[in-house]
C-alpha cells in the first residue's frame, strides 16, 4: 500500500514534470516575438522582467502560501546592486546578475526569520515594513544610490563580451527573455519535485505537514531565500537594460503591482505571472496611449472585471474550445487530490 502511494506520487510528479504542447508553444511564441515584433522589444523586455518578478512572488505566495506586500525590497536591492556595480566599473552584465542574486538572497534569508513568524496579517506588515525600511535607506544614502534623483552613469558592457546593448532594445529583450526562461525552467523543476510537493502541503495545512515530518520552517526559509534571489535577478535585469535606477524600484506600488499581475494571471501557476505581466503591460500600454490622463480608470475597471469573471472560468472556457485537451483533463483519473486551480 505504502509503495503504491509512493509510486503513484512519483508517477503523478513525473506526469506533471513533462512539458506539454501548450507550454512549448508559449515559449516558441515568446521567442518568435524577437523576430516578429522588432518595434516592441522595449516593452517586451519590461514584460519579461515583470513576468520574472511575478514568478518569484508566485514561488512564495502560490506554492508556499507566504503572503508578501514587500517583494519590491528584493527587486530594488537587486536593481541597486547591479546598478552600483556597473557604475563603479564592473560592467559585465552576468557578474551583475550574480551579485544581485546573492545580495537579494542574503536579505531574503535574513528577513525570512522575521517573516515566518505570526499570521498572514503579520507577514503582510513585516514584508511591507522591510521594503519601507530599505526604501528609506536608499533615499538617505544618496552618496551611494543617488537618492531621489536616481542612480546616474550606469554603463553596461556587452553580454559575454559579445553582445552590446542597442537602442532598439533587441539585445536587452533577448537577454531578459533568456534569463527569464532559464530561471523558469529551474522553478518548474523545483515545483514538480518532492520538495515542491512538500511546500504545497505546508501551504494547505502547515500543522498536518509538520505532523507527517516535513521540516516546515527550513523548507519555507529555503523557498523564501530562493524567491528573493529571483526577485533580485529581475531587478538587476531592469537596472541593466534601462541603465538607470531610481527609488521607485523599492516603492510600495511595485510590490502591489506585482501582486496584481500575479492575481490576474493566476496564483500557484507558474505561467500565471508571465501571462499576468503580458495582460497588465499590454493593457496599460494600449490604454495609456489612447488616453494618457484617464487610463488608470479603464485599467482599474478591466482588472475588476477580470477578477470577477475569474481566471479559472476564463481558462476553462478556452479549454472547452479545445475538445482534445478537455477530454484529457476530464477523463484521466486523479491519483492525488489537489486544489484544481493550483497546478504547475
Amino acid at each position: 500500500m505504502l509503495s503504491n502511494t509512493a509510486d503513484s506520487v512519483r508517477a503523478s510528479l513525473n506526469r506533471r514534470g513533462r512539458w506539454k504542447i501548450g507550454e512549448i508553444a508559449f515559449w516558441l511564441v515568446a521567442a518568435s516575438t524577437l523576430f516578429l515584433l522588432p518595434e516592441r522589444h522595449l516593452i517586451l523586455n519590461e514584460i519579461a522582467i515583470i513576468g520574472l518578478f511575478a514568478l518569484s512572488l508566485d514561488l512564495i505566495l502560490g506554492y508556499a502560501g507566504i503572503v508578501s506586500l514587500g517583494h519590491a525590497a528584493f527587486f530594488g536591492l537587486g536593481a541597486y546592486a547591479a546598478g552600483i556595480l556597473a557604475r563603479d566599473g564592473f560592467a559585465d552584465p552576468l557578474l551583475g546578475l550574480g551579485v544581485a542574486a546573492i545580495a537579494a538572497a542574503v536579505l531574503g534569508f535574513v528577513t525570512s526569520f522575521l517573516v515566518l513568524r505570526g499570521s498572514d496579517l503579520t507577514k503582510l506588515m513585516v514584508t511591507l515594513g522591510v521594503a519601507l525600511v530599505l526604501g528609506e535607506i536608499a533615499n538617505q544614502a544618496s552618496w551611494l544610490t543617488g537618492g531621489a534623483d536616481g542612480l546616474q552613469g550606469i554603463a553596461m558592457g556587452p553580454i559575454l563580451g559579445l553582445f552590446e546593448f542597442d537602442i532598439f532594445g533587441t539585445t536587452a529583450y533577448t537577454y531578459s527573455l533568456v534569463v527569464t526562461f532559464l530561471l523558469f525552467v529551474v522553478a518548474r523543476r523545483i515545483v514538480v519535485s518532492p520538495y515542491g510537493l512538500s511546500l504545497r502541503s505546508i501551504r494547505d495545512n502547515a500543522l498536518r505537514a509538520r505532523a507527517v515530518g516535513i521540516p516546515v520552517n527550513r523548507r519555507l526559509v529555503a523557498i523564501y531565500t530562493l524567491s528573493a534571489a529571483y526577485a533580485g535577478v529581475a531587478g538587476a535585469l531592469l537596472a541593466q537594460t534601462t541603465q538607470f535606477v531610481s527609488l521607485d524600484v523599492l516603492a510600495f506600488h511595485r510590490s502591489a503591482d506585482v501582486m496584481l499581475v500575479l492575481v490576474i494571471g493566476g496564483v500557484g501557476y507558474l505561467y500565471g505571472g508571465l501571462i499576468g505581466a503580458i495582460i497588465f503591460k499590454v493593457l496599460q500600454d494600449v490604454i495609456s496611449a489612447w488616453t494618457p490622463q484617464y487610463w488608470q480608470f479603464w485599467i482599474g475597471l478591466i482588472l475588476v472585471l477580470i477578477v470577477l469573471a475569474g481566471r479559472e472560468r476564463l481558462t476553462e472556457r478556452v479549454r472547452a474550445l479545445w475538445p482534445r485537451s478537455r477530454g484529457r483533463t476530464v477523463d484521466r483519473p486523479q491519483p492525488l487530490t489537489t486544489t484544481p486551480a493550483r497546478e504547475v
Partner: peptide, 22 residues
C-alpha cells in the same frame, strides 16, 4: 505625441526610447 510616464523614471526612459526608435 503625449505619453504618460506616471512620474516613474524608468518608464520615462522606455517611453523616450520607444518614441525615438518607433
Amino acid at each position: 505625441i503625449v505619453k504618460d510616464d506616471t512620474g516613474v523614471a524608468d518608464v520615462t526612459k522606455r517611453l523616450a526610447q520607444e518614441l525615438i526608435v518607433n
